[in-house]
Nucleic acid binder design. Structure first.
Lengths: 221, 221, 221, 221
DNA sequence: AATGAATGAGGATTCATTCAT
DNA sequence: GATGAATGAATCCTCATTCAT
């Protein structure tokens, strides 16, 4: 399954194609420099902040020369975008598989919230980068980020449509606004958690968030 | 009413007292330089983006010398913070007055969403600055912004507490999470609207958003 | 006596003439702003260094407005020059009187060294300004300083000429070079003392210095 | 001989090893950028004065980009310090070799004065920088300069100690004060020469200065 | 492919000085 | 005379990117 074919790798400038054959040959400590640099970028940007994170710092962390970065990425911005694309792609694939077998939309929504939180909880550096540093960019870059996000938002839309069809969700639901509520709520919760230095457990908030999203704050006895 | 006295003006070194008499005398083009610069900053930052907006551009737009900026603001960052503080203070006061006479928490929530959207709709430049440019800052600054936001979030909390007490809202509501849902949803909706170049009417979305926040996406017949 | 009439006050831009009549009227706490500013400058420049000492700091220390400085001094440089001129003038007058009654050139030289050191010892702030801060200026200003110094150097020359005539000093003495030795030695000694934070007694070095200047480092048994 | 190993090169971050092979290959116009920049700095600072000498001027004179300066020097101040360190190091080594073979302390002292004057005479730009521009700095920098000077002052001390031991100099000599006389005299003489636009011959003053330092101004028939 | 020395555009901020009051 | 708000020129340094090796 790949409903998310719109997330393709924009790697025209990459000189070496990461062919399946090519990767099979690589030893463990020889993981492709591309991923090596992305992993270094997550750590370095999380530690320093995007604007205080010089390309040379990423290069040092990745164990490559400054110039090597530019064999794999068009510019500094492209590292950030690629990083997000790469992580988002993995996230969406995992999430799709997790959700696949479930019957109800409500259950799928819970799993979405839970797993969103889990991914961030499992990688604090990544959480800092996506919740804080990724936003420190101009409108142009924000549009690219939104483009990458579309795959995730589509996942939400799918759940909503399924829920409406099987009667779990209100038939008159405005999909776009509901999606914005769901994503906005998850995102705000995650950002607060990061701003509070991850000092409480994020994943355990998922059921309550799920409850709020399904029933709202109203009193329905 | 002013529960939000914690939002005070940080401008201690300003020598000119804003006497009522003093202000009455001022011509339109002589409004205090402090506000003059803030207004210029909103326009200039919205047009250029925070990082592309040189202090000299703000000064030119404000009709003052570059150095004059530094008589009223500590540095470029302080302009951004002060701008947000100033606007937020006004917003919270207006909102407090609007909400004051209403009986139900639900009605108050609707007014909050509506007015939040209206403020942004009435000043597209301000919307761009608060939804996009204000975020392009490091964690330290984000903490200051959050501090200023507290007054607004407190307003939400007050509504929620009132709603719980009078039975409108679920008694078991987690105030913090619910506030994050409400703010997250409003914020995400507003940001999407800005990212779409304000091309649809934001205020008219308020009732639907309100409905979602109260009842969630579930089907409650 | 005033052989040093070449040290006149270059005060063309000073608005109020310090007439004798005018000064007689002044109360103690109303000493002319001119001296008030100079005293403030000595303290402030010594504390902060010439380049870190803003005109506004001097004004604050003197208890006057920034603009007032410019009623008494042409510019910041002029404060430094005037300060040195004022202090040097006093110094030369005092020294002249002290030396006047003495019979031998050697004794006069000793008194010169001693008093030079004593003046600096009695006012550490002044010592810092003359030995360190006054030098942090461009060549043009250094020429003006040298001009003011001429009065002092002339005093040395007079002693030397007298010493040669009465047979105390070597008849073939090169006045200019000897004066440079004397002044250079005193100045170097004083600067070292300031750089060492005045941590030893300067005045008590005078006899040894005097001995060195008269007899040199050679062994004359 | 190199008793002055305490003057080492502070340029730790320089990546290029000065291999003998490497240097042999270099054409004249390819001399290491470090020295290239220092030479440019001497000329440019002498011409413009330290404070009027923009880093970009030095870069232009050196034929490198502005940024290149900062690959070799920490900041503008570091150029000045390094320049002095570099020249002083050479000077001390040359002087040590020249003095090495001589028998009497008096002869060594004469050579020291002569060569001090000769170095300055041979490079008027360097003379301006060391006698005037180097002094236009704050106390912190002066301390660094003094530190570099220590090597030279030690040379003087060595001569004095030798002179005392072999009976040439007075046994009761205060080394520190005598060193201050010698250095102060040389320095004052040199500064006067620079302030007079090098318009007379400095080196030929050495014997007279030497005579003064050894015998003082007194009349010893 | 990989390197890293070299490049050079770009901007926030300070502070001596002025001048309307 | 005194004030102090306003002015605006002037510059060091960073760091993303290139390209010769």
């Amino acid at each position: 399954m790949n409903d998310y074919s719109f997330i393709f790798h924009s790697f025209q400038h990459r000189k070496i194609q990461n062919k399946v054959e090519g990767e099979r040959v690589l030893k463990n400590n020889q993981k492709p420099k591309y991923k090596q640099i992305i992993d270094a970028a997550v750590i370095t940007i999380a530690e320093n902040g995007y604007h205080q994170c010089q390309v040379s710092k990423i290069a040092k962390q990745a164990g490559v020369a400054d110039g090597t970065i530019y064999l794999y990425f068009k510019n500094k911005e492209d590292i950030l975008i690629s990083l997000f694309k790469e992580k988002m792609q993995q996230f969406i694939q995992n999430l799709s598989e997790i959700i696949a077998g479930k019957n109800t939309a409500a259950e799928k929504l819970l799993l979405l919230v839970e797993n969103h939180f889990r991914i961030l909880s499992e990688d604090h550096a990544l959480a800092i980068v996506t919740q804080l540093e990724l936003r420190q960019t101009n409108k142009e870059l924000r549009l690219k980020i939104n483009d990458i996000l579309k795959g995730y938002l589509q996942l939400i839309d799918n759940i909503l449509e399924e829920g409406i069809q099987n009667g779990e969700f209100a038939p008159a639901l405005d999909i776009r606004l509901t999606r914005q509520m769901i994503f906005g709520t998850i995102d705000e919760t995650a950002t607060n958690w990061v701003m509070n230095d991850h000092k409480y457990d994020l994943v355990s908030l998922a059921p309550k968030i799920h409850q709020l999203l399904i029933h709202g704050c109203g009193n329905h006895h």
